[in-house]
Structures are given as C-alpha cells and as structure tokens.
Amino acid sequence: MPGKYTYINRTNFFEDVWELVKLIPKGRVTSYGSIARYLGAGSSARMVGWAMNAAGAIEDVPAHRVVNRNGMLSGKAHFDPPEKMERLLQQEGAVIENNCIKNFQEMFWDPNIELI
C-alpha cells in the first residue's frame, strides 16, 4: 500500500524515491526495501538502489541514510570517496563496524510507520 503523501507523482520513480529520502530525519536511516514498499513497489528494492546511485548529483538528497535491510553500507562505493558514506553516518550517531551499522535497529526509520 503506497503512502499518503501527495508528492508521490507516479510519473518518475526515481524522483519519488528522492523526495521520500529527503524526509528521512537526521540521525535516522532506512532501507531500500522500506522505500520500495512505501511507494507501492515492494519488489523494487533494487530499483530504489539504482535511484540512490543516481542521486549523487542531487545535492539535497541524503543518500547516505539509505542502507540495505541489514544495516550494511551497500551503496558506499557510489560515494566519492567511498568512506564518505560512513563518515556522514557517524556524524549523525551511527556506530559502524565492518561496513554495517551496529545500532541499526535504534536508528531505523520506516516510512510505512512514520508517515502514515
């Protein structure tokens, strides 16, 4: 079931992803799958990943706040340098070990709960 926010325009999936990512509060993270489910495309987590890869040129999209379902920094290779994702997350309170957020559960922000 898609979220109730009117910014979801259904004409450009990547733009919908970016608008949703802009809503992730500082100090919180979400997953590709949670974004896909919120947008009504539950099996499109990989496509959300592609949208995040393309977000590098968009200054106000906090792409570092989107990780995989286990809290792994799976998109860090798309940051320049790759360590930038980890550094940004640490500045927001993430404890990271072996490319994974140790305090993932306490930082997790689920748009399917938070935005309904």
Score class of each variant (00 low, 15 high):
Met1Pro: 01
Gly3Asp: 10
Gly3Lys: 09
Ile8Ala: 06
Asn9His: 14
Asn9Trp: 15
Asn12Met: 04
Phe13Met: 04
Phe13Val: 03
Phe13Glu: 01
Phe13Ile: 03
Phe14Cys: 09
Phe14Thr: 02
Glu15Ser: 10
Asp16Phe: 08
Asp16Asn: 08
Glu19Pro: 00
Glu19Cys: 01
Glu19Phe: 03
Leu20Gly: 00
Leu20Lys: 08
Leu20Ala: 05
Leu20Tyr: 07
Val21Pro: 02
Lys22Glu: 11
Lys22His: 05
Leu23Cys: 02
Ile24Cys: 03
Arg28Phe: 03
Arg28Cys: 01
Val29Tyr: 04
Thr30Cys: 00
Tyr32Leu: 04
Ser34Met: 11
Ala36Asn: 06
Ala36Leu: 06
Gly40Asn: 04
Gly42Tyr: 15
Gly42Phe: 12
Gly42Ser: 13
Ser43Asn: 13
Ser44Leu: 15
Ser44Ile: 02
Val48Gln: 12
Val48Lys: 09
Trp50Ala: 12
Ala51Cys: 07
Ala51Lys: 07
Ala55Tyr: 05
Ala55Lys: 06
Ala57Phe: 12
Ala57Lys: 14
Ile58Thr: 11
Glu59Lys: 12
Glu59His: 11
Asp60Asn: 14
Val61Cys: 04
Val61Glu: 04
Pro62Lys: 03
His64Gly: 02
Val67Ser: 01
Asn68His: 11
Arg69Ser: 12
Arg69Phe: 13
Asn70Asp: 07
Asn70Val: 03
Gly71His: 08
Met72Phe: 15
Leu73Glu: 06
Leu73Ser: 11
Gly75Ser: 13
Gly75Tyr: 12
Ala77Lys: 12
His78Asp: 12
His78Gly: 06
Asp80Gly: 04
Pro81His: 08
Pro82His: 06
Lys84Glu: 14
Met85Ala: 08
Glu86Ile: 02
Arg87Ala: 10
Arg87Gln: 11
Arg87Cys: 01
Gln90Thr: 10
Gln91Leu: 10
Gln91Asn: 12
Gly93Pro: 00
Val95Glu: 08
Val95Thr: 06
Val95Leu: 01
Asn99Glu: 14
Asn99Phe: 12
Asn99Met: 05
Cys100Asn: 13
Cys100Thr: 15
Lys102Glu: 09
Lys102Val: 10
Asn103Thr: 07
Phe104Cys: 02
Phe104Val: 01
Gln105His: 10
Gln105Thr: 08
Glu106Lys: 13
Glu106His: 09
Met107Ser: 06
Met107Lys: 02
Phe108His: 11
Phe108Pro: 00
Phe108Glu: 00
Asp110Phe: 06
Asp110Ala: 09
Pro111Val: 03
Asn112Leu: 11
Glu114Met: 11
Glu114Gln: 13
